[in-house]
């Protein structure tokens, strides 16, 4: 009887020590689910979801404060990927946050730019180059198409243009000879 109690106690103590050590030694910094959600989001940093950027939105999703259908640039594919990751049902995009649009690029009409630097301050990825009273221009490679530079411009000289297709970006299209099967989200919505 005493031997039993003693041996079980010893086992419990050893396990406790081991678990305590593991908890300290293998502590995970930060919340890995936030990282995973953030890696699915398109990193447009547009704020259409109602948060200050993709990462704050990812944190809000992880905390259960935001829904998974608030990211228009991520589109339907993004919602499905988030639903898969979080084990929820996919749902259509929330129209309050905006609609899915083809990828656009901000272009400054350099003739009309007055060099006010307001768009520079608005750009979330520092993709606009310029200085006070000097012409500004968008670095096309870095622009995420978030449209945040449009509102502050006092002379409305920024346009959103569709990304031009060239041989390097051209893709074979979906074969047209057969009707496309209905996609997962449509089936869920229906």
């Amino acid at each position: 009887m005493i031997v039993d109690i003693f041996s079980l106690g010893l086992l419990a103590a050893a396990s406790g020590l081991l678990l305590g050590f593991a908890a300290v030694r293998f502590k995970v910094e930060g919340d890995p689910i936030v990282e995973q959600i953030d890696s699915i989001l398109p990193q447009t940093q547009c704020g259409q979801c109602g948060y200050a950027g993709c990462r704050p939105y990812a944190e809000a999703i992880a905390a259960g404060e935001a829904d998974i259908n608030q990211c228009p640039p991520g589109g339907e594919g993004g919602v499905i990927a988030l639903a898969e990751l979080l084990g929820r049902d996919p749902k259509p995009l929330n129209p309050e946050n905006g609609a899915e649009k083809p990828k656009m690029l901000a272009v400054i009409d350099e003739q009309n730019c007055i060099g006010c630097t307001l768009c520079l301050q608005a750009c979330p990825v520092d993709a606009i180059l310029g200085a006070a009273k000097h012409m500004h221009t968008v670095i096309a490679r870095e622009c995420t198409g978030c449209e945040l530079c449009l509102a502050p411009c006092p002379v409305d000289c920024i346009d959103m243009l569709p990304v031009a297709q060239n041989i390097g970006t051209w893709k074979w299209s979906y074969p047209l000879s057969m009707p496309e099967p209905r996609r997962a989200a449509e089936q869920v919505a229906a």
Partner: peptide
């Protein structure tokens, strides 16, 4: 390619913040 671009945007946004 989109993934790579998104990663670049993420880094640039983080750098800006």
């Amino acid at each position: 390619k989109e993934k790579q671009k998104a990663e670049l945007a993420r880094q640039r946004h983080q750098a800006r913040v």
